Amino acid sequence: MGDTVNSINNQIEKFKERELDLSCYDEAKLKEMLLDIGYYRLGFYCYYYFDKKANKFSKDIKISDIINLYYLDIDLKYLLLKYINRIEINFRTKLIYYVSMKYKENSRWYVDDTIMDAESIKVFKDNIYNDKFKQDNLTLKKHHINYPEDEYAPCWKVFEYLTFGTILTIFGNIKDQSVKQIISEKYGIKDLDKFFKLLHTVRLIRNICAHSGVLFDYSLPQSVSSIPQINYNKGDRNSLDTSIKVIGFFIETISSNRYIDFQDDIKNFFDKRKKDPVLSQVITDRIKYLD
């Protein structure tokens, strides 16, 4: 939408020039929403309804359609994050437990170059486990005050403060494939490469949800691995619906009751919004949710 700062009045005029129907809101409400959401951020959702060649919005599209799409995206991110957090905690716990059980005398195995890739340890030391990291996280701060001779704290203390991406990186850089295989099989997957790709899918969606990315039309850069436990709609293995099914797969391996909750939440979420014909088309064409 250009590099020039536009006043709220100019933003509204630009919508009018591009033939967007603003009649569903009075001017005060429209200004309130633009100051709340932001003209630039709303642009991420405008483009779906915008004809670039004609330089105007699609016929019969209203500003309320764009606002509704924005809130569909926001609400879906909140919903998925709730379940992704459960997956993240579960995987972190399994990683700590099964690797620590293998190396019972070494609670700091994550920085042991006989266990981990040496280059990954250097990156971890330089970029993550620094003085700021130890000071910013209370448990680690207390540990290093109480045990000043310790260069590192035990993994079960440290891993609580690591991002999901860092946790996956640590998992991937363990030299012993057999311990990674044990964890993979706890989720019912024998193929370690497929397991890692499924986890990476969860990570990608998690990052979009947590960092205000646009979710509704997200397409995975690589097709998700095919496994018998997941029935992808029409064989599509890149759509957002595919990612949702991957999240559901992990939830089901964690708790059958939570999986029922997940299925109900997803179905109710989309069924409610499908009553709006404009959103219904987005759900079918972009998200590719068909259930």
Rank of each mutant, 00 (worst) to 15 (best):
Arg86Thr: 13
Asn173Glu: 14
Arg237Glu: 06
Thr4His: 08
Ile87Gln: 04
Lys56Gln: 14
Val214Met: 13
Asn90Met: 01
Asp291His: 10
Lys194Asp: 14
Lys125Phe: 00
Arg286Glu: 13
Ser226Cys: 00
Ser225Pro: 11
Ile67Ala: 00
Asn146Gln: 12
Lys104Val: 08
Tyr49Pro: 05
Ser255Asp: 12
Tyr259Phe: 14
Lys29Met: 09
Asn130Arg: 13
Ile227Gln: 02
Asn233Gln: 07
Val123Ala: 08
Ile37Cys: 03
Leu240Gln: 11
Tyr70Pro: 11
Val99Arg: 00
Ile247Ala: 04
Arg206Ser: 09
Gln11Asp: 08
Ile247Met: 07
Thr166Lys: 14
His144Asn: 09
Asp271Gln: 04
Arg108Asn: 11
Tyr259Val: 02
Thr284Ile: 09
His143Ser: 02
Phe262Gln: 03
Tyr259Leu: 03
Glu160Thr: 01
Tyr98Leu: 10
His200Tyr: 14
Asn9Trp: 03
Leu80Arg: 04
Asp117Leu: 05
Asn257Leu: 11
Pro277Ile: 08
Asp261Glu: 15
Met1Trp: 10
Thr169Asn: 13
Lys274Met: 12
Ile260Arg: 12
Asn137Phe: 10
Leu192Met: 04
Asp217Glu: 10
Ala118Tyr: 11
Gly38Pro: 06
Glu105Tyr: 07
Ser223Ala: 12
Lys141Trp: 13
Glu149His: 14
Asn55Gly: 00
Pro228Ala: 02
Ile174Thr: 01
Met101Ile: 05
Arg92Lys: 15
Ile227Thr: 04
Lys186Pro: 00
Pro228Glu: 06
Phe164Lys: 03
Asp112Thr: 07
Phe91Thr: 06
Ile208Asn: 08
Lys175Ile: 11
Lys102Glu: 11
Lys194Ala: 08
Ile260Asn: 08
Tyr97Val: 02
Leu198Thr: 09
Gln181Ser: 15
Lys104Trp: 10
Asp150Arg: 01
Ser58Glu: 14
Thr201His: 01
Asp117Phe: 08
Lys186Met: 12
Thr284Cys: 02
Thr93Lys: 02
Phe124Asn: 07
Gly188His: 04
Leu95Asp: 01
Glu27Asn: 13
Ile266Phe: 05
Lys245Val: 02
Arg206Leu: 09
Asp236Val: 10
Gln281Asp: 10
Thr169Gln: 09
Leu81Cys: 09
Lys180Ser: 04
Asn257Gln: 13
Ile208His: 10
Asp131Thr: 11
Asp60Cys: 02
Phe44Ser: 14
Glu17Leu: 09
Gln135Ile: 00
Lys102Ala: 00
Tyr259Gln: 04
Asp113Asn: 15
Leu34Pro: 08
Asp131Arg: 11
Asn130Ile: 10
Asp236Gly: 06
Phe164His: 01
Phe216Trp: 15
Asp73Tyr: 10
Asp276Ile: 03
Trp156Met: 02
Gln263Leu: 08
Leu22Asn: 11
Ile251His: 06
Lys31Tyr: 03
Ala28Asn: 11
Arg258Met: 07
Asp36Arg: 14
Glu185Ser: 13
Val99Met: 03
